[in-house]
Design a protein around this nucleic acid. Structure first.
Lengths: 159, 159
DNA sequence: TATTGTTATACTCTATAACTATA
DNA sequence: TATAGTTATAGAGTATAACAATA
């Protein structure tokens, strides 16, 4: 069961993400790199050295393939990603970070994933406590989300 | 200081908000009411019976006044809000929820603010613990955010 | 003269439909 | 025939600039 305390906790998370210093930081992360939210999402999703089929991105976010083309074009224009052929299937194009993309990504990730300053109000022990509680919640939630929605997470991912 | 545990906690919050069941629920909330994210934000910002000057909305979200006009137009077309004159200043227009807007708002809020199902993995005691920790963080964070950014929060709000 | 809100306009983000190449 | 990606196009979302009314 979710209690009143749980509901308040969720609301506080909302405030933290959408109202506090984190929001300003996301805006900053985008203006530093000069890219759109969609491009940012793509940049953060890609891993250095690992190509991802365009189709997989479209499925993962439930967006149209043409939009992935558009995102990839924009990122490619800026030299942040490149299209690579798939080893076995010549229809497939893999999107991969360039060197420039790797550094842009890590710059953005540093801003993006750094906790909002309010975290400094917690002691080290409290931060660990918070982490442990959230681990439980997030694990349960993702498990359920995958069970319900993402039956599509087939491990296509090949080099 | 923010510790490694704190950073992980923040990342888990991210996952919870953007990847888990919560994300699906936000989409659902929008499709139920059939309105855009901007309109949703406006709807949730307004309080039943309380009008807000359009200028205040623009300042609060740091968006252009013309965009607030556009949002208000769209919501007004759907009969969810109405423009009302300001008591003292005839330049100012107040945006206020209609009856239909009040019920649309509470329907959306119910979906929006209900914790993701992963919360059920926590006992009642743990939910309280989580809430207490988040209260500390959110309070500190909003305080800092207000100190840095929102020096503009002047209490114009009049009926 | 400064401020609130609107109109006209354009640019970005995202989707639909028709298409090409490969399987 | 089905699938991966592209192109052309159109619809939302958001901003800029010029404007009208009021202060």
């Amino acid at each position: 069961m979710t209690t009143a305390a749980g509901r308040e906790a969720w609301r506080l998370i909302h405030d933290l993400v959408f109202k506090g210093t984190a929001n300003a930081r996301m805006t900053q992360a985008r203006s530093v790199t000069g890219i759109s939210p969609g491009m940012m999402k793509t940049l953060l999703h890609l891993r250095p050295g690992e190509g991802v089929p365009m189709r997989e991105l479209a499925d993962h976010w439930n967006v149209d393939a043409s939009y992935v083309t558009c995102l990839t074009d924009s990122l490619e224009e800026r030299g942040l990603v490149e299209r690579r052929p798939h080893a076995n299937d010549r229809r497939v194009k893999m999107v991969a970070l360039t060197d420039k993309g790797v550094s842009a990504r890590s710059e953005a990730a540093a801003l993006f994933y750094r906790p909002p300053v309010g975290f400094r109000a917690l002691t080290s022990a409290e931060q660990r406590q918070l982490r442990d509680l959230l681990r439980k919640v997030a694990a349960a939630d993702l498990e359920i989300a995958d069970g319900r929605i993402g039956a599509r997470q087939s491990t296509l991912r090949s080099g």
